[in-house]
Amino acid sequence: MSTNDATSITRPPRPPKPPKPHPSITALATFLSSLPQTDIVPPPLPSKLRYDIYGSLLLLPPTSPLTTEPWSTFISSLPAHSQSDLYTSLAAALGVTHIAINSPIPAKSTEDGNTIRAPQITPLHGFFGDPNAKDFEEVYWTSTVQHGIFQTWCPLHTMFSRGNITEKSRIHDIVAKQLGGGKEGKVGAVDLFVGIGYFAFSYLKGGVDVVFGWDINRWSVEGCRRGAGGNKWGVSTDPRDGLKDERLVLFEESNEFAPGRLREIKRRMEEDGRGWVHIMHVNLGLLPSSSCAYKTALEVLELNDEEKEAWVHVHENVAREDVDEMEVSIIKKFGELAGELGMVVEVGIEHVEFVKSWAPGVWHCVFDVRVLVLRR
């Protein structure tokens, strides 16, 4: 055999390296190793944690390993200082300052007196403030940016739904497409359950000139006001002088007053020679049903001066197999309410969006209702 000959050697493949644990799991392991020896055996480390991070806030769902057995019992058995050490370690590992458990808002929250649909959170780490505080500066606020839109809210008093991000994006794209070819005159939208600007901000970023929003939760209105400022949009919470250069006009009151408020703003604008805006979209983002605002939406659209298409985005919780029946019901209801108001309308549903699962077999759906108010 010459010295240039090579002998082929087959080596067994190297075993794959085990994946590195997530920083949150490493933090838990380090915490457990720091505990003094006791008769209480810690639970096995979870393979991963479920959570959401918004700015400096970490929200644990009620199904997280830390909030369910056996970890929940183990944590509650620890002395207070050890529990504090646990959450301090977790916060440091994930780069946050506040931790809370986030529970879903009960479907019957309105019937149970929670008319503002206040969030159900349990603070675990960080100073959230007094839940009874009245001053906006005395409580903790957090924020996030989705699709380039800044939003801020007070977790003690205002909910934030990550699952709505697809609908926010869809609304933006609809408006951007509709207005992509330009527009004649000013175009507006009305959000009858504006919250912290979940959908109102998508209308603004999509290109409408102004959004009018209503909410009875003062904390939501303040979050919406702050969020608009963060996006460099002019905002007014006192539009008694009529619409000027504001892109967002907020009302801290029941949306039953919307038609009257808009009628007054329209009158003042027309007196000033500026002309009214065409309301192209009305958003009804209340769950489990927004049927209470169908009539108000029609009254708002009656203020339009021309026979132009408009859309009402109706949010409803509905079983998948009942969606077709719900479409028929919505069209029928809009027709009946229009008759009560003395309006002549054409109503149809152009699209049904399945936003997210609400409960087993039940979906949060948005029905895009096309409404054409006919002038007689």
Results as ranks from 00 to 15, higher is better:
3 T>V: 14
8 S>P: 01
10 T>C: 06
13 P>Q: 06
21 P>T: 07
21 P>G: 01
26 T>A: 01
45 L>V: 02
51 Y>C: 07
54 Y>Q: 14
59 L>F: 09
59 L>Q: 13
60 L>I: 02
68 T>H: 10
68 T>S: 11
69 E>A: 15
74 F>L: 04
76 S>D: 11
79 P>H: 08
83 Q>F: 00
85 D>T: 04
90 L>I: 02
90 L>G: 00
107 A>V: 11
111 E>D: 15
111 E>T: 10
122 T>L: 12
123 P>N: 05
130 D>A: 04
130 D>T: 07
135 D>K: 13
137 E>H: 15
148 G>W: 03
150 F>M: 06
152 T>D: 00
154 C>Y: 02
156 L>C: 01
159 M>G: 00
162 R>Y: 02
164 N>G: 09
173 D>Y: 04
174 I>L: 08
179 L>R: 08
180 G>D: 12
187 V>Y: 06
191 D>R: 13
194 V>L: 07
195 G>W: 11
199 F>E: 00
204 L>W: 07
204 L>V: 11
204 L>K: 10
207 G>L: 05
208 V>R: 06
216 I>M: 12
243 L>K: 00
256 E>I: 01
257 F>T: 12
257 F>M: 05
270 E>W: 01
271 E>K: 14
273 G>C: 05
276 W>T: 08
282 V>E: 04
290 S>F: 12
291 S>I: 14
301 L>F: 10
304 N>F: 09
309 E>S: 12
314 V>G: 00
314 V>S: 01
318 V>D: 00
322 D>F: 02
324 D>P: 01
331 I>M: 06
334 F>Q: 05
337 L>R: 01
338 A>H: 07
344 V>R: 09
358 W>G: 03
362 V>R: 01
364 H>W: 11
375 R>Q: 12
